[in-house]
Design a protein around this nucleic acid. Structure first.
Length: 570
DNA sequence: CTTCCTTTGAAGTCA
DNA sequence: TGACTTCAAAGGAAG
């Protein structure tokens, strides 16, 4: 959203957000004020996004010229994820990354202290000398170092490190948790030689490093100074191309767009273009990386196979390499991007029950991550939709609701709560799902994929910006943030949200970030669209049978209310 | 050993 | 448009 900043006026709410965020900085109070935690979380999410945006914007403005040092990372997406998770898990210690200003949003707090780049955007020679070697180890693509394996070995620990929990890529430098996310835009600067037709980049005569001609081309998404980031090992290898690899590798022939970049916004397009330049992206059947590591996002049936499923021609047995295989190649299994919770799960392993125990900040981090990931995913796989994966797994038993009669509360519906239709309107309960909106302020993949993507993207980017909530007495419609992925969400959300959801933010007096795209309907502080629930119960009927309330809760929205920490069923 | 369940969130489908 | 379904990761429980 650097562009936003470019406007300068787009700081809208920036200050407010910061302030609000700071206010929320007293986060630890959350325990005491659990009741409002949910909506606070929402606030945090949005504000977090805003801050990230703002922050990035600011950084962008200052560092627009800075060229990132590409940190090619061939680690598989998953490893990277793990690594990233690890990074996340790490305390923001050392103040290296810790920002006093954004306690809750440490990711962006990468000091420039090590920034080798001159303010004018040129790489300091000294810096270059200092850092290049580092990157040599990291397989700077431009170097076109043969012997990838060798490098990799040097960089990556022994195979033993490949465990999920241990980051595969260990770097001496402390990795900032969000670095990866922030550095999505690094691709702009990818030293790799992108096809001229795809990349606007200009090679720096001196360094030979592709240089972004115009700051404006910098990624709007993750404007964080690449240079600054460059100093830091990429926690998310999956976000950074290494030897042409990306967190989401392009399925060979799996895309509708020969050059996905074409369907992307400028930033991503350059990103992708550099990333997916023909020579950099070897075709790996089955979604394997060059390294032979199955791509996390792309799971070839041959590699990862759901047991027993051979339905849908897409799933083929590796044993039968025939036409089937071709088909398989055509449609590698691209996994859904992980949502915040999944990211958390993956990191924490079975700590799901603790999800709600996370501080708002922590959750916000994951939401942000998830959002980024979705963005990236959508941009990398413009044509992909979750639908593609439908039917690739075994269907769950309960296909037909009919059999699961109301009386049948067994297994699945055991927690189903009684619907409170009448009360539904009485008090909106925070919808976690909607809360998620916050985390993913509109990232319509379609928009991204479409030629119009830039515009959409822009709006999307803008959305995260917060609007300081000013009380606006809308009792009946407090707005929710538009569903991220659903373009229509913004419009529809207002109605739907009003009916089904939440006051999540409504009651909070603190400023709330609203996606710009959505009508920012500030919610009057203290005023909930409907009389606040005095009781923990949430009037809103569960959206799904699966999201149920614990028996205790008369009704709960799927999102566990703060006051009633989700009881892990386990 | 396999399958299912569980969690939350996102997205797709259907009436 | 709302309700519902499916999938994502990962561990545990059950068969």
């Amino acid at each position: 959203m650097p562009q936003l900043n470019g406007g300068g006026g787009d700081d809208l709410g920036a200050n407010d957000e910061m302030i609000s965020f700071k206010d929320e900085g007293e986060q630890e109070e959350k325990i005491s004020e659990n009741v409002s935690a949910e909506r606070d979380l929402d606030d945090v999410k949005s504000s977090l996004v805003n801050e990230s945006e703002n922050n990035s914007s600011s950084s962008d403005s200052e560092q627009a010229e800075r060229r990132p040092q590409p940190r090619p990372d061939t680690e598989s997406y998953e490893k990277a994820r793990d690594y990233f998770s690890e990074a996340l898990r790490r305390p923001q210690d050392g103040g290296f990354f810790k920002s006093p200003h954004y306690p809750g949003y440490p990711f962006l707090m990468i000091p420039d202290l090590t920034n080798p780049y001159l303010s004018n955007g040129s790489l300091s020679p000294s810096a270059r000398t200092l850092f290049v070697p580092q990157y040599l180890q990291m397989k700077w693509p431009i170097l076109d170092v043969p012997g990838t394996a060798g490098l990799k070995d040097s960089r990556s620990p022994t195979p033993g490190h490949l465990s999920n929990k241990v980051p595969v890529v260990q770097h001496a430098h402390h990795v900032h948790p969000l670095t990866p996310l922030i550095t999505y835009s690094n691709e702009h600067f990818s030293p790799g030689t992108p096809p001229s037709h795809l990349s606007p980049e200009i090679l720096d005569p001196k360094t030979g490093i592709p240089r972004t001609p115009h700051p404006s081309e910098l990624s709007p998404y993750y404007p964080l100074s690449p240079g600054a980031v460059g100093q830091i090992p990429h926690p998310l290898g999956w976000l950074v191309p290494q030897q042409g690899q990306h967190m989401y590798s392009i399925p060979p022939g799996g895309f509708r767009h020969p050059y996905p970049a074409l369907a992307m916004n400028a930033s991503m397009s350059s990103l992708v273009s550099s990333r997916f330049s023909p020579h950099m992206v070897p075709h790996h059947p089955h979604g394997l990386h060059q390294t032979g590591i199955p791509h996390p996002a792309i799971v070839s049936p041959a590699i990862k196979q759901e047991p027993n499923h051979d339905h849908g021609g897409s799933v083929m047995h590796s044993k039968s390499p025939g036409p089937a295989k071709k088909e398989e190649d055509k449609k590698p299994h691209i996994k859904k991007p992980l949502n915040a919770f999944m990211l958390y799960m993956k990191e924490k392993e079975m700590s799901a029950p603790k999800w709600h125990s996370l501080s708002r900040e922590e959750q916000a981090k994951y939401y942000e991550l998830a959002r980024k990931e979705r963005q990236l995913h959508s941009q990398l796989y413009p044509g992909w939709s979750a639908r593609d994966n439908y039917g690739k797994r075994k269907k769950r038993k309960r296909d037909n609701k009919s059999d699961s009669a109301p009386e049948d509360f067994s297994s699945r519906n055991k927690k189903q709560c009684v619907q409170y239709l009448p009360s539904e309107k009485m008090c909106d309960s925070p919808a976690s799902s909607h809360g998620s909106m916050l985390d993913s302020p509109a990232t319509p993949s379609a928009a991204l994929a479409s030629p119009a993507a830039p515009a959409a993207t822009h709006s999307e980017q803008a959305q995260p910006l917060s609007l300081t909530t000013k009380p606006e007495g809308r009792s009946h419609h407090h707005h929710h943030f538009p569903l991220p992925g659903k373009p229509s969400g913004s419009s529809s959300s207002s109605s739907s949200s009003s009916s089904s959801s939440s006051t999540s933010s409504s009651s909070s007096s603190s400023s709330i970030s609203l996606p710009i795209g959505s009508q920012s309907t500030p919610i009057s502080p203290g005023q909930s669209p409907s009389p606040p629930c005095t009781t923990p119960c949430c009037p809103r009927p569960p959206l799904s049978t699966r999201r149920p309330c614990t028996p205790i809760m008369l009704c709960s929205n799927h999102s566990p209310s703060p006051w009633l920490p989700n009881q892990p069923t386990k």
